[in-house]
């Protein structure tokens, strides 16, 4: 290890003759750094940091607003969709009711026509049957008269028709 070099103290740190010099320059340095920092650097950096924090919180607030607007728009869209659906439903319902009414009316009309025609037809059938029965009894009377005449029997017309009517009734009964 190093030996103390002669008369000078071995540790430069304990050389008190350099102390005023060091302390002077230290104080000068500290004052200069303090002035630079407190006048220029720290306010600038502080303002930049504050500005950034402000910008970030503003952006976050704006994003929040946009999000809310989007939610509102979605709600409005949903409401409109709901209304349109309800309106369409109503229109469909209306159309169905109209059609139903038309249909009912048409069915009623058709029913009435059918009933009328049926009644008419029945009447006609009844008339035809009537006339047919009459014609049958006429034919039967005529035939019976002819047969009796052919057998040479002089038959009373009235008794023949009564007997024919009697037989027809029994035959149909």
């Amino acid at each position: 290890m190093a030996e103390p070099n002669g008369n000078a103290p071995g540790m430069p740190q304990l050389d008190f003759s350099t102390f005023p010099n060091q302390i002077l320059w230290l104080v000068v340095t500290l004052v200069v750094i303090y002035l630079i920092l407190s006048r220029v650097a720290l306010p600038r950096i502080g303002s930049v940091l504050a500005e950034r924090a402000g910008t970030i919180s503003n952006d976050i607030a704006a994003a929040e607003t946009y999000k809310q607007q989007a939610a509102e728009a979605e709600a409005a869209y949903n409401r409109a969709l709901e209304e349109a659906r309800a309106a369409a439903h109503k229109v469909i319902e209306q159309a169905r009711a109209d059609i139903q009414a038309d249909l009912d009316a048409a069915i009623a009309k058709a029913d009435a026509e059918i009933a009328a025609r049926a009644a008419e037809s029945e009447q006609k059938i009844a008339a035809i049957r009537e006339s047919a029965t009459e014609a049958v009894s006429q034919v039967a009377e005529d035939a019976a008269q002819e047969i009796l005449t052919a057998f040479g029997v002089k038959a009373d017309a009235k008794a023949v028709s009564t007997a024919v009517a009697e037989r027809l009734k029994g035959g149909t009964a």
Binding site: P20, N21, Q22
Partner: peptide, 24 residues
């Protein structure tokens, strides 16, 4: 002496320069 420009002065000045470079 008290006002001699020494290596203390030099390296403290370099520290000031570094502070200026970094912070300013």
């Amino acid at each position: 002496g008290m006002f001699t420009i020494t290596n203390v002065t030099l390296w403290m000045a370099l520290a000031v320069v570094s502070v200026v470079l970094l912070m300013v």
